[in-house]
């Protein structure tokens, strides 16, 4: 089911959380709302869910205006950052909850409810812990239970609020991949909120970059990374260097012992960090004293025999089109 957000604004005491946001989310896609804290992404998610009401603007599901619909009538699934599992119920009962509270006319019988709950737990690979209490599970397990619970009511839309924010880095990565695979299997329109650009780039079909209550750009991961629409997007999605008014990615910068072309800048190596297949080099520019971050391939690093304190020439590679946002500024 597709989602359309039309000109939604929301004010919380003192601050404008959302300012005339409009957005289209095609059916079946996995979309990330990406932005720093305060960008309004969680507020927008909650408005789509019906947990908050917009001050102005409308929300449409599959073309129908759903703005006035109560959250329980919207057929959305919501996964909270801190899981919000029902603490006094077993895992199975948590997953079965949505089915149990259906009105008698649409409620399946007891056997059917249990069957469906077990099916979902199998889907998230947790059928073995069906009888346990949420307190006995790890964070990653709890989040998967929360997901199963949300899916139990066969929602048209799945909404996830920083679903992996409370987890360890390693667990986060595993669950990210797992979410992607799950989405490929069940194809429910899904929207998740994150402040981690790596997560958004890796998982989403489409990224909505938000800042201060506004949408900065909407596009595929390649689009927002390679063709950013504004300096904010460029900076938020990765490291940048500033060369003569141009923003350049660390891997688009060349290092050499001799000057290569007119744009070359002399710099002193301050720090070397091997990082798998690349080496991250931090340099102090001698003119202007800016800090430059460069990523070089391991072979190049060995070839150059770089040492701390060496002076090398730094030249940005030509990118087409070049990213110029505003005038030259001190770094």
């Amino acid at each position: 089911m597709s989602i359309e957000v039309r000109d939604v604004s929301k004010v919380f005491v003192g601050s404008q959380a959302l300012n005339g946001v409009s957005l289209e989310i095609p059916a079946g896609e996995l979309v990330a709302l990406l932005g720093p804290s305060g960008s309004g992404k969680t507020t927008l998610l909650r408005i789509i869910a019906g947990l908050e009401a917009p001050d102005s603007g409308t929300i449409h599901f599959h073309g129908e205006d759903a703005t006035e619909r109560h959250v329980r009538d919207r057929r959305v699934g919501f996964v909270f950052q801190h899981y919000a599992l029902f603490r006094h119920m077993s895992v199975l009962e948590n997953v079965a909850f949505g089915l149990r509270v259906r009105p008698p006319s649409t409620r399946p019988n007891e056997a059917e409810i249990r069957r469906r709950a077990h099916d979902l737990l199998r889907l998230v690979q947790l059928d073995g812990v069906a009888g346990r209490d949420p307190s006995e599970l790890s964070g990653g397990q709890r989040q998967r239970v929360a997901l199963a619970r949300a899916l139990a009511v066969e929602p048209n839309v799945l909404l996830l609020d920083e679903p992996f924010g409370s987890l360890d880095a390693k667990v986060r990565k595993e669950l990210r991949r797992w979410l992607r695979r799950l989405h490929d299997e069940i194809h429910v329109t899904s929207v998740f909120v994150t402040h981690d650009q790596e997560e958004a780039l890796e998982v989403a079909d489409r990224i909505v970059v938000m800042n201060e209550g506004r949408v900065e750009q909407v596009g595929t991961p390649e689009e927002v990374y390679e063709h950013p629409a504004s300096e904010f997007v460029y900076r938020f999605l990765g490291d940048v260097n500033l060369f003569h008014g141009r923003l350049v990615r660390p891997h688009d910068v060349e290092l050499a012992r001799t000057a290569q072309g007119a744009g070359a800048v002399l710099a002193t190596v301050r720090h070397l960090r091997p990082f798998g297949a690349v080496v991250r080099v931090e340099l102090d520019g001698l003119d202007g004293g800016q800090t430059i971050e460069v990523e070089v391939a391991r072979e190049r690093y060995v070839e150059l025999a770089l040492q701390k304190g060496d002076q090398v020439y730094v030249s940005p590679r030509e990118v087409d089109p070049p990213h110029r946002f505003g005038r030259e500024r001190p770094a």
Partner: peptide, 12 residues
């Protein structure tokens, strides 16, 4: 949050 989760799941 638990009450919100319950309402999203369709509880009155």
């Amino acid at each position: 949050e638990e009450e919100e989760a319950a309402m999203v799941l369709g509880a009155s």
